[in-house]
Design a binder for these strands. Structure first.
Lengths: 143, 143
DNA sequence: AGTAATAGTTACCTATGATAATTAAATTAA
DNA sequence: TTAATTTAATTATCATAGGTAACTATTACT
């Protein structure tokens, strides 16, 4: 499997650039989209929820959420625990979510054109397995 | 294929973090490793060669090469065209390359543990196809 | 010879994320 | 029930990586 990382990583910049171009219409970027995606699919959430999901530190999420608040895409709702900041999509946020979701799904199909269905499915299932290996085999690997 | 990008991208940060940890022993990072890898496998090269390979702008490569020169991992060799800066690995660079190559290959095997051989091979071959689609289908896609 | 293009550099800016310290609120323990 | 501890979020500061625009030096074109 020598060369696997190169193959994996050489997709990253072209892909993230394309996604950011697509999202820039709404003054968004993929990092902001992740937050929208999370609260759309998990319901109103705290910053810690999001931070845990993406293995990103809390101050990073604070910044993303502040930006989304400026854009009026998310808003805070009251919760019992007054330490927590529970955020959800605004109506505007829901609209923008739908439009972006469609464009992203179109792009997902587009980048898969000409690739056999079974190849797509295998890759689709293999990537999370690799992620698990990276995250959970760390302890037992000393080198 | 909805959700493909998420699956692809959620590997990125854990992987690049792990690679950077591994390389930090030699004061390297993956971005510096890319340059070493390129000139090891393509022979002495110019900054433009490397810039084209990784779709990164020239100033970025200038910075990487300067850092590698500081570390005495690459050196400049004279060429006919005096505009060009042709760089190659030093002896120290060759040594470090070999050690890193081994560690990276070990990690490549490690993250693939427990995944069937045919799944590995399919993923290995599918990723470059997706990259081609992203890079070369840009023109015909207006959305 | 004069103009274009090319290789590399410099200066400056952006995006993204990390760490450490701080505030406020809730939980646990004495 | 007060005191200590933990938790959620924030602020300030720093690091990494990359981009654009403007510039110099050299080579290629015409």
């Amino acid at each position: 499997m020598e060369g696997f990382f190169q193959r994996y990583l050489s997709l990253y910049r072209p892909l993230i650039t394309k996604l950011n171009e697509l999202l820039s219409t709404y003054e968004l970027s993929y990092s902001l989209w992740q937050v929208m995606f999370y609260i759309k699919n998990h319901g109103p959430s705290t910053l810690v929820d999001i931070s845990n999901q993406y293995q990103v530190e809390k101050p990073t999420i604070t910044r993303r959420v502040h930006r989304l608040e400026e854009l009026e895409i998310v808003k805070q709702i009251p919760g019992k625990d007054r330490r927590e900041k529970i955020i959800q999509l605004t109506e505007k946020g829901e609209e923008i979510y739908k439009e972006c979701r469609k464009k992203i799904t179109d792009l997902e199909h587009s980048v898969m054109e000409g690739i056999h269905s079974d190849e797509k499915i295998t890759t689709f299932h293999t990537l999370p397995k690799i992620k698990e290996n990276i995250l959970h085999r760390e302890e037992n690997k000393s080198d």
